[in-house]
Design a binder for these strands. Structure first.
Lengths: 227, 227
DNA sequence: AGATAGTGTGTGAAATTTACACCGTTAAAT
DNA sequence: ATTTAACGGTGTAAATTTCACACACTATCT
């Protein structure tokens, strides 16, 4: 028999990454009952003496080894029976990050066997109500893509316009017109054209661009409409 | 010395109403420590055996006498010291409702001395972090006004176009052009023109309109851009 | 030298947004 | 009966934004 508990707060994290033209999220394989061996979102219990924002950072780190992600809460799930051991209300956070091969995923606690990226299409069944949490989060960023510069958090620092477009197409799940897309993106004035070109491709190399955060801040006060 | 408690969930409600060209919110006067006699948002503790959505309905009812409001959560506040007696994480909900003189505000518990409407301008200091909660909620509905038909929840069932425009102007805090506003609103096709006119005004009576929820649903699938 | 794969560019039509002002109606006041 | 005060209701033209659409260029690989 598992222990029962009352009134526990937890955090669950939906972390998006973009790699090889695919959108992925970060999952763990659980090493604890309930749902031992299942796949799940990185999530755990909030301590008494930490804010939920701090808890989110800590928990993500402990379960995946990733630090200093900028996460934002997007919804709180509070159905009575969402956790088999008792009443657990969970605040869900999301972040968008660059998948650089460099950062290793290595849980620092025993609660997770491992952490890994998984394409958002063909997601398996997840533990608890994590599939629902994921869907809610995915819809959230899909909307947010239209009015916040979140695409640039997923791309490498230097990127081509085609990569940017491909990201939009993936998240929004629809084709966009190349000429119109480029015209519009460039018209905002927050993309900085670099003197550098793509390398290692077997076709004409494309120009690289950077997202210029300062210019963005000057142009919009947190508001914009994109793609 | 007040009792201390651990890990409590609570709900706080930001309920908007519109009356006499003014936007108002529902406040209570507290009858309990801490912050006894202060003004506060209606809010209380979630029970073990109720979902947070259910808790929100119950709590609003107990503190104000209002029932069957359709509330939606908008943010969760989880700073460590937001409550002087211990760790309390609160999920904030909002709703927009018609202030009909008819519905009486009458708390059914002792936790509130009374409940009343207060204009959103010139809000006094509120208990706990309720001022921050209110601001977050106000920003939320301000954004949402642009893409969800929430204005119609604030107006009486039958309303004039001028009332509708005045509501938009109040919430967005800017003047809109009368002709453009009417043209656009009518172009959506979800406003039903009634055969009735305004009564009891000392000037030419305006036509009354109704929001046609069915048509709205057909036209948009939860998406729109307004004003 | 040719094949392959993706880069980069412009125009016109259609739709949407914006700016703008006056006469009509009603009830209350004189 | 007339006037006044207050709001109701309406159209057009210019500017801007969105949308649809196709081909020549460049780099690499064989």
């Amino acid at each position: 028999m598992l222990p029962k508990f009352d009134s526990v707060f937890s955090i669950d994290c939906v972390i998006f990454g973009f790699e090889a033209g695919e959108l992925k999220i970060l999952l763990i394989e659980r090493n604890e009952e309930p749902y031992k061996d299942w796949l799940a979102l990185p999530g755990y219990i909030v301590e008494q003496d930490e804010s939920i924002d701090d808890a989110a950072e800590r928990i993500l780190y402990e379960l995946t080894g990733l630090r200093d992600m900028h996460m934002q809460q997007f919804h709180t799930f509070g159905e009575v029976n969402r956790h088999p051991q008792g009443r657990v209300i969970t605040v869900a956070y999301y972040a968008l990050i660059r998948i650089n091969g460099q950062k290793e995923l290595r849980p620092v606690t025993q609660y997770a066997k491992k952490a890994f990226w998984h394409p958002v299409n063909e997601l398996p069944k997840l533990a608890f109500d994590h599939s629902e949490i994921f869907n809610t989060g995915f819809n959230k960023i899909r909307r947010r893509l239209h009015y916040q510069p979140i695409a640039f958090e997923l791309l490498p620092e230097k990127f081509t316009l085609t990569q940017l477009q491909s990201l939009y197409e993936t998240v929004l799940n629809k084709k966009l017109d190349k000429r119109n897309f480029r015209k519009k993106m460039l018209s905002y004035g927050f993309l900085k054209e670099l003197d550098e070109k793509q390398k290692g491709v077997s076709y004409r190399a494309a120009k690289l661009y950077k997202f210029d955060k300062r210019k963005y801040g000057k142009i919009f006060q947190g508001e914009m409409t994109l793609a």
